[in-house]
Design a protein around this nucleic acid. Sequence first.
DNA 1: TGTTTATATGAATAATTGTTCATATAAACA
DNA 2: TGTTTATATGAACAATTATTCATATAAACA
Lengths: 111, 111
Amino acid sequence: MSNNKHNMLSEEMCYDLADFFKNFDDSTRIKILYALFQKEMCVSDLVRELDMNQSAISHQLRVLRQSDLVKFRKEGQTAVYSLDDDHVATLLEMGIEHIRHKNGYEEDNYE
Amino acid sequence: MSNNKHNMLSEEMCYDLADFFKNFDDSTRIKILYALFQKEMCVSDLVRELDMNQSAISHQLRVLRQSDLVKFRKEGQTAVYSLDDDHVATLLEMGIEHIRHKNGYEEDNYE
DNA sequence: TGTTTATATGAATAATTGTTCATATAAACA
DNA sequence: TGTTTATATGAACAATTATTCATATAAACA
C-alpha cells in the first residue's frame, strides 16, 4: 500500500496532518481550545472571554468544527461548544513543555 | 502572575504555542520531520527523499532549526540534521490517530 | 406580527508564508 | 589557485488566511 520508495508517510496523510495541525497555528484558536478545555461555552461566552469580535469567533469555531476538534449543541438561540477530541489538552501541554524547555524554564505559571 | 481575569493562557504563551504548532502545519515540514524520525540525514538526502528543490528544503530546515525542533552538525561540507525534540514523534502519532478516528478507520497503513 | 438576541457567513482587505531563482559561502580537491 | 560540491539565504511572486463589515437566519418574546 506504499506509494513511496522508502519509509515515508503517504502524500495524502502528510496533507491531512498539516491540515490538522493548522488548527493550532493561530493564537485565537489556541485561546478558544484552551477556554473550551476549562468548560463548555457558548459563542457569546467566548466573545466575552477572549474580548473579540463575534464574527471572528464564529469563523474560527467553524474551522475547528470542520476538523472535528470541537462540537456543539443548540439550546434555543445559543450554541454551546465543547471539545470533541481527547488529544487537544495533551497536545497543548506538549507545546507548553517544549516552550518551557526551549526557554530554559524549570517551572512557571503561564496563566 | 496572571494577566487575565480568568483561567486563560497568557497572551505571550498563546503566540508561542501558535508559533510552535506552525512547524507542523505544512506538509513539507511534516515530511522532513518524519524522515528525520527514521534516521538523521543531510540536506541532499532530504532533497532526494522528498524529491524537492534544495533551496526549499534549506528554507524549511531553517524554520525547524529556529524552533529547536531539529539540530545539525557539520561534517565537512555536509550538514547532518536530526530531531531535537522528543515530542515530535508523539505529536505526529496523535495527529495520525485523530485523522484515523475522524475518517472512521480502525487500522490502516499510512506509509 | 414585529422586535430583539444569538449565531453564521459571504466579500473584501491586509498580512503571512512556501517556493523558486539567483547568488553567496565555504569546504574539498585537482 | 581555480573548480566543484554542499548548503544557506535574500528577493520576488503566488497562494493562503485572519479579521472586519455587512447581512442573513432563526429563536424568543412582547
